[in-house]
Design a protein around this nucleic acid. Structure first.
Length: 613
RNA sequence: GGGGCCGUAGCUCAAUUGGUUAGAGUACCGGACUGUCGAUCCGGGGGUUGCGGGUUCAAGUCCCGUCGGCCUCGCCA
């Protein structure tokens, strides 16, 4: 079958098979289909009126469907009745037009894929009159997002949104094909499940027949897919909807979709290899490019040191540099005191940026890193063997030269430093690095830079609760040689876990799971989960583990994020047909909404609202 | 829960330091027009400046609150 790849039409619309009108009785062709080879044919098109140009005796309309745009011409000399209907057509009316494909001869429109022809109408059916739309799908300056979401049925008519939906379909299809070819079974898991208090806040669904009890919508199919491994379904995949009741971001929706994968009788690298293959497959299918494999595998320790982030944007360098020895010895109190207090002084070099950032802009950057806990942002403009800065006077010439050398700086460079705890220097400088990379245009925005981050810590210490919390989740297998450290130095234990990162986004995450009940018990102990409690929360998994569990592991990729990345967007609402707002509302349907008292009574639920409502 | 930006005609935006009757483009309505393709030309209607309160002789503009949208910190095993 030809044309498996996406093909971009001259008018920017994407065509995607099937292009023809199979299974359609009302139409003979789509609005993106007709070319000069069809001249002379009698055809019927259906679509939405995108634009009209009324010359009284001669009326043109641009007829649109999701395949493209075709011009239709109505001629007065032909049919009075039809002409008066044609003159009344307005944006978004739905019509069926029968006519002859004719050449546009000298009036060809080169900007339209169908621009060599037009339809000379002999019959016009106005199937559905449209109200005047609040915005037109063809608009170039987009209305505000609230309006777009309220009238999502209009927004979805926009070519750009339709392209995203087609891309999403193509990505999903290519993913299923890939896993199918490698023997994976697509198995569905429950949407109504059991609440597990760990992790994100659950969306709850009350049970009518069990008053006072609730289902939880899945945060992910994690436990079910592990049980499938124990049950012998050794290669599982699912395009799974997940739900998390946490605050939203540009790349986070309360319901989202994961490409969920799990395999048995595997080690970490088997999983990484499978996903490497998937990414290469997707890049080939969707971009017609070859991805170099294996994807880079960087340790968590390394990326935190080099970039200050566990999901660095690897499209550009500008790595973090530690200047502890200089800072500790210099005369600048903030630096010196930070080192003496066990903190860190790290910085980065914005090459050639000395003249691009005014003092005022640097003040703005200082406020920016403040959001990440940095109490200040030291900066130096680099000259010949000398640094220019309000704090330059606290450093002697030797220190100037050492800093220049440490950051391999050249005249005209702009250096930034943060002195604080290790965590704050990481967070602040990672955020600064991303911002500078964008502002200085250090990368090609169309590039996809994909890599693995491996060897995450198994647990991190939770100061507030005075306990160790799972970095990934409580079923994650420690690295074998680190197991003895579980009881002596938990913070040093590495997990057999991995994140797939792309352009600064976490776009996938997974691990090898614990399949040994005694190690699982050690991990629960470490996290302060008593066995009784563990039985209560995860008992059905623990019980399953006691009946013959193969070694297994898996990964979940964020489908919405991948579509966003492939589409070149910067928020996932653009690649979701019916997304929710930041307050988790659907402006189209009005969800969530109050319900009848009757419904609440059936569910044995009483509401207790704050005074104001 | 915290910080930031935004809200003016159906839509996109403008409105000097707080100062005359809140403007423009587009959309819409009426008219003209047989080769347009962002059609063109003539004419017309259209405003509780998100909502509530306050300051002031005077508020789209300043202050407080509130609602909504977006970005973000916390949060998201």
């Amino acid at each position: 079958m030809p044309g498996r790849r996406l093909d971009k039409g001259r008018d920017g619309s994407r065509t995607f098979p099937p292009q023809s009108c199979d299974f359609t009785m009302l139409r003979t062709h789509t609005c993106g289909e007709l070319r000069s080879e069809h001249i002379g044919q009698s055809v019927t098109l259906g679509g939405w009126v995108q634009n009209y140009r009324d010359h009284r005796g001669l009326v043109f309309i641009d007829l649109r469907d999701r395949y493209g745009l075709t011009q239709v011409v109505f001629n007065l000399s032909h049919d009075d009745q039809m002409q008066s209907v044609a003159r009344g057509l307005r944006s978004e009316d739905v019509v069926l037009v029968e006519g002859e494909v004719i050449s546009r001869s000298e009036n060809i429109n080169p900007r339209l894929a169908t621009g060599e022809i037009e339809i000379k109408a002999v019959r016009l059916d106005l199937l559905s009159k449209s109200k005047t739309p609040p915005f037109e799908p063809s608009t170039t300056d987009l209305p505000n997002e609230e309006l777009r979401l309220k009238h999502r049925f209009l927004d979805l008519r926009r070519a750009a949104v339709q392209q995203s939906m087609v891309l999403r379909h193509a990505l999903t299809k290519a993913t299923r094909n890939y896993f199918d070819e490698h023997g994976f079974l697509d198995i569905e898991t429950p949407i109504l499940g059991r609440s597990t208090p760990e992790g994100a806040r659950d969306y709850l669904v009350p049970s009518r027949v069990h008053p006072g009890s609730f289902f939880a919508l899945p945060q992910s199919p994690q436990i079910y897919k592990q049980i499938l491994m124990i049950a012998g379904y050794d290669r599982y995949m699912q395009i799974a909807r997940c739900f998390r009741d946490e605050d939203l971001r540009a790349d986070r929706q309360p319901e989202f979709t994961q490409i969920d994968v799990e395999m048995a009788f595997v080690q970490r690298d088997d999983i990484l290899d499978v996903i490497d293959g998937l990414m290469a497959h997707l890049v080939r299918e969707l971009r017609d490019e070859e991805l170099a494999l294996p994807l880079p595998r960087l340790t968590h320790e390394e990326v935190m040191e080099r970039f200050g982030s566990d999901k660095p944007d690897l499209r550009f360098d500008m790595e973090l540099v530690d200047i502890e020895s200089i800072a500790g010895a210099c005369g600048f109190g903030v630096f010196k005191n930070t080192i003496e207090a066990g903190g860190r002084v790290r910085g980065l070099n914005a090459r050639g940026a000395a003249e691009k950032y005014s003092r005022k802009m640097i003040d703005e950057l200082t406020a920016f890193v403040g959001d990440y806990g940095a109490k200040g942002l030291a900066f130096f403009r680099v000259g010949e063997n000398v640094l220019d800065s309000p704090i330059a006077k606290f450093l002697d010439d030797q220190h100037h030269r050492e800093i220049i050398e440490a950051l391999s700086a050249d005249p005209g460079d702009l250096l930034f430093f943060v002195a604080d705890t290790a965590a704050v220097t990481s967070q602040a400088l990672a955020a600064l690095r991303n911002r500078l990379g964008r502002e200085l245009q250090l990368y090609d925005p169309s590039e996809l830079n994909i890599a693995w981050v491996i060897d995450f810590p198994l647990v991190t210490y939770n100061e507030e609760e005075d306990r160790w919390d799972a970095e990934h989740h409580p079923f994650c297998q420690p690295v074998a040689e680190d197991v003895p450290l579980l009881k002596t130095d938990p913070g040093a234990v590495r997990a057999q876990s991995y994140d797939l990162i792309c352009n600064g986004y976490e776009a996938g995450s997974g691990s090898i799971r614990i399949h040994d009940a005694s190690i699982q018990q050690d991990v629960f102990d470490l996290m302060g989960i008593q066995s009784e409690e563990a039985e209560m929360r995860f008992g059905f998994l623990l019980e399953a583990l006691r009946y013959g569990a193969p070694p297994h592991g898996g990964v979940a990729l964020g489908l919405d994020r991948w579509v966003m990345l492939f589409a070149g967007h910067d928020n996932i609402r653009d690649v979701i047909a019916f997304p929710k707002t930041q307050k988790a509302a659907d402006l189209l349907s009005g969800a969530p909404s109050p319900v009848d008292d009757r419904q609440l009574r059936d569910l044995s639920i009483k509401t207790d609202l704050p005074e104001s409502s």
